[in-house]
């Protein structure tokens, strides 16, 4: 691992064009985070180069303006690799009133010996709408993952909507029937839409939050099963 440490900050902002449609106003790529517009109001994250690697500090800012809609996806999953020190991926999101964001990238895969930190901070104004999916896979096939600590904070109209942290690679939590059980992946989707009541099926629950939103939370043996479970849960939430 002789690669130089990477500092990157990519920025994505929407605005309205003169016909009142969503326009991607700012799209600043900063390798390895490369942004590519694939349709009106739709941007893909294209990873250029491996990683993040230990020591990298990556940041993505997303701002969705009033009355605009943005969808962010990714071409491939993100493979977190070890390096020198801890890698960091932070995402800052602001969705204005009447704005709508769908963020549904491919999973983050934790390779052996990685040491990764992810933070996501989302500010939603009243009437903002959000669909946010996050999937973490504990190692490639047959691999024991390194360590990862993710923190997700979303506020809606100034009040906390959802705050959750996951720690992978903590001997107290790994393999605990209270935390991940025997699962190899964890995923959740936050949707700012109400579901009438909680639902539960094998490895997945649809959880109406105390605030205006629903969390679909799933555990699975592999990424395909995880996506299936999340999709089932997402389909139970009326948007």
């Amino acid at each position: 691992m002789t690669k130089a440490l990477v500092r990157a900050r990519a920025i994505l902002r929407t605005g309205l064009d003169d016909r009142g449609r969503t326009r991607v106003e700012t799209m600043r790529s900063d390798p390895p985070i490369t942004l590519r517009q694939t349709a009106p109001g739709e941007v893909h994250l294209v990873s250029t180069g491996a990683g993040p690697l230990g020591g990298d500090r990556l940041r993505l800012d997303v701002e969705v303006a009033e009355g605009t809609s943005l969808t962010v996806r990714s071409i491939a999953s993100t493979l977190v690799l070890p390096g020198t020190g801890r890698s960091l991926m932070e995402i800052h999101v602001y969705v204005a009133s009447g704005g709508s964001l769908v963020f549904a990238p491919e999973p983050t895969v934790l390779a052996a010996a990685c040491d990764h930190r992810m933070t996501t901070a989302i500010t939603l104004e009243p009437d903002a709408s959000l669909f946010w999916r996050e999937e973490i896979v504990f190692g490639r096939h047959g691999e024991r993952p390194g360590r990862c600590h993710s923190r997700f904070d979303a506020t809606f109209a100034g009040r906390p909507l959802l705050r959750q942290e996951f720690v992978v690679g903590d001997p107290d939590a790994d393999g605990s029937p209270a935390v991940f059980g025997t699962a190899r992946c964890v995923g959740s989707t936050l949707i700012t839409a109400a579901s009438k009541e909680a639902e539960v099926a094998e490895g997945v629950a649809v959880l109406p939050l105390a605030g205006p939103g629903t969390l679909v939370s799933a555990l699975a043996a592999d990424a395909v099963e995880l996506r299936n479970r999340l999709s089932w849960g997402e389909s139970r939430v009326s948007v």
Partner: peptide, 11 residues
């Protein structure tokens, strides 16, 4: 404040 989730406990 810490916000450590336990998906299995939720299920």
């Amino acid at each position: 404040l810490p916000a450590h989730a336990a998906p299995a406990l939720d299920l």
